[in-house]
Design a binder for these strands. Structure first.
Length: 600
RNA sequence: GCCGAUGUAGCUUAAUGGUAAAGCACUACUUUCGUAAAGUAGUGAUGUGGGUUCGAUUCCCACCUUCGGCUCCA
């Protein structure tokens, strides 16, 4: 952590003390637990005992914080004995627990008291509270378990943030507002993309016609990309005998599995992952080394029992579609195949306008070889293959030692969206374990049976989650190629509808997704609606356009085949509000096509 | 799942222990309009199930939905 961050963290952490002081001042008898600084602010946990606190109390608490701040002096840490500390905090069971733990760990115990508020703290504070702690704001309230342990008591957590200057605080609050405006749940409704029905159930999104267009465009793109690069698509059903997950060793370890159902006399479950189904494809017949790399893919729907409190919009759902890919390789092919996959992943990011990304490579903890399957040499080779492939493609990465699964190392790729937020999208996992569980083997040049390695690949992860990320990334204004409606045709009055219909037909003939607004509304209202719907282009048609066109009477349009696109005129406006003026249909279609090809 | 908040029409919001208000949207009619909201009228709602009460959308209980959290360690 750099110096600047330390300074900011110290201020935020100090502000948590101030919050604790204010709440205890309002309700003597509550216990303050811990109050660290976090990524965008700080929090303070309380055991409210017999009181309650809600966001409605924030103004009152903030006011008290400001009052107390007036009398606060610079923080000073004072080392005290265990005995003294236990005496000072005898009434606070959380502090007592901490003091005892620290004593056991032989840590120094320090206290501070910036202004009639004694607290236990390791240090790292403001040297000028009156000045430095001014620009804070309480944000939200939530429950959190003491020490993050769901078996322990639930405390009340108050979140807040603080910045050194008012400008920085305001900027942060503005960014939060902006993120709220882009919230895919709000845009999903406003733009008619998807809905979540109470009758169908939480975490089970339904895609409306426009959302379904976006969804299938994403899927079609991924299918084409993969097909063009040697992947064969398969299709697998959504349930399987429970036994298959015993074979894969997921049973009992994977807690998001839905309860089993009885069919005839046997137990079946909804599939929580596609892997075992895909393995059946490999197992279909004896495989030769000549068939490797053996690549199969499917946008496979899986079902995961996410905790009820964790489902949210499209980000966390219970029915999701994974752009799943399994590649069976021989060991010597690892590096080449990784290179190939990572390159494709970069293509995907390009296509969707993610300019910044970085990777995390999860490695084994070499001090504990017993925790991993396979020999240290195999691991060494696989890990190096991952690192070298990332290096070769100039992907920045950091290493997570000890984060690998027991069956192989992996690489996860995170992208940065247009608001600067990071999302994990892709994952490529090496697996030496499942071939053994399922007895998947190929026959090598010498006629010997050999276990392949498997690459588990998801380029965008869940299509639903990816859509949520895209909606927020683009703030609902999808690039032309991905827009559910690409062109809105807006006749000025109903005298111009017939000509508009012809234009619509001609655009549709060129595979442009068009919507004709023939409602009885003013042109201003139609423009407003199309703009709010974030439709990239509006085509405005009135007397002027028709007059300029070679065919003067709307009735004559389409009669005979003499019309030509370059003789039909339209006016064009963009969703950004730019008036592109009069142009003929040929020019317009050419413009659209070229823009679609460069995926803008 | 747990803690807290929440639930009024398709959306955004109002009000009340005694007929639930409005804007947008929708429907009909009028208007035929030139680059971000034409006019008039109409349809439409208290999440579900219990309880208290003469009477509940309002108070109480349970359930459900949605939202913020539950990884960040004095």
């Amino acid at each position: 952590m750099n110096k600047k961050n330390n300074y900011l963290n110290n201020l935020r952490h100090s502000c948590a003390h101030l919050l604790a002081a204010a709440v205890k001042d309002l309700h003597p008898g509550v216990h303050n637990a811990i109050g660290p600084s976090i990524e965008n602010g700080f929090y303070q946990d309380f055991d409210m005992v017999k009181w309650t606190v809600s966001e409605a109390d924030f103004p009152k608490i903030e006011k008290r914080m400001r009052e107390l701040l007036k009398s606060w002096a610079p923080f000073e840490e004072k080392e005290v004995s265990v005995k003294q500390a236990l005496k000072d905090f005898a009434k606070n069971p959380y502090k007592v627990e901490l003091i005892k733990d620290f004593a056991k760990a032989d840590k120094k115990i320090t206290e501070n008291n910036p202004g009639n508020f004694l607290d236990l703290c390791k240090g790292g504070h403001s040297h000028d509270p009156k000045k430095e702690l001014k620009n804070f704001k309480l944000l939200s309230i939530a429950g959190a378990y003491w020490r993050g342990d769901e078996k322990k008591k639930m405390l009340t957590r108050i979140y807040g943030t603080l910045f050194p200057t008012k400008e920085e605080l305001d900027k942060y609050l503005w960014q939060q507002e902006e993120a709220k405006k882009r919230d895919h749940r709000k845009l999903g409704r406003d733009l008619g993309l998807f809905l979540i029905s109470d009758q169908v159930g939480p975490g089970l999104p339904i895609f409306l016609p426009k959302g379904a267009v976006v969804r299938s465009l994403i899927e079609e793109y991924l299918i084409k990309l993969k097909k063009d690069n040697g992947y064969k698509f398969v299709w697998t059903p959504h349930i399987a005998r429970s036994q298959i997950y015993h074979t894969s060793q997921h049973w009992g370890k994977y807690d998001a599995m839905f309860s089993a159902m009885k069919l005839d006399k046997e137990e079946y479950v909804l599939k929580p992952m596609n892997c075992p189904h895909h393995f059946q494809v490999f197992l279909d017949k004896p495989r030769s080394y000549k068939e490797l790399p053996f690549r199969i893919a499917e946008n496979g729907v899986v079902y995961r029992h996410e905790k009820s409190g964790e489902v949210s919009g499209l980000l966390r759902v219970r029915a999701l579609t994974i752009d799943d890919t399994h590649t069976f390789i021989r060991f010597s092919q690892t590096y080449d195949e990784l290179n190939r996959v990572l390159k494709l992943i970069k293509d995907v990011f390009d296509k969707f306008g993610f300019k910044e990304f970085k990777a995390r490579i999860s490695l084994r903890d070499s001090r504990h070889p017993e925790k991993y399957l396979g020999s240290p040499e195999e691991w060494e080779r696989a890990e190096n293959a991952l690192k070298n492939a990332a290096k070769h493609l100039q992907i920045k990465y950091n290493e997570g030692v000890g984060e690998a699964a027991f069956y192989g190392p992996k690489i996860d790729i995170m992208v940065k969206d247009n608001l600067g937020r990071e999302w994990q999208l892709s994952t490529v996992q090496l697996d030496y374990n499942q071939p053994k569980n399922f007895s998947m083997k190929y026959i090598d040049e010498k006629g010997k049976d050999v276990y392949p390695a498997i690459l588990h690949i998801a380029m965008v992860g869940s299509i639903e989650r990816f859509m949520a990320i895209l909606i927020e990334h683009y703030a609902g204004a999808f690039p032309l190629w991905l827009s559910p409606i690409q062109v809105a045709i807006l006749p000025i009055s109903d005298k111009h509808i017939s000509y508009s219909k012809k234009i619509k037909e001609l655009l549709e003939k060129d595979d442009i997704r068009v919507e004709l607004n023939d409602e009885n509304k003013t042109i201003g209202a139609k423009i407003r609606e199309a703009t709010l719907q974030k439709i990239p282009y509006m085509v405005i048609i009135g007397a002027e356009e028709i007059r300029r066109s070679t065919i003067l009477s709307p009735d004559s349009i389409g009669k005979g085949s003499h019309y030509q696109q370059d003789k039909l005129y339209i006016s064009v406006r963009t969703r950004e509000g730019k008036n592109l003026g009069l142009m003929n249909l040929y020019e317009f279609i050419k413009k659209l096509k070229s823009q679609i090809e460069t995926f803008l």
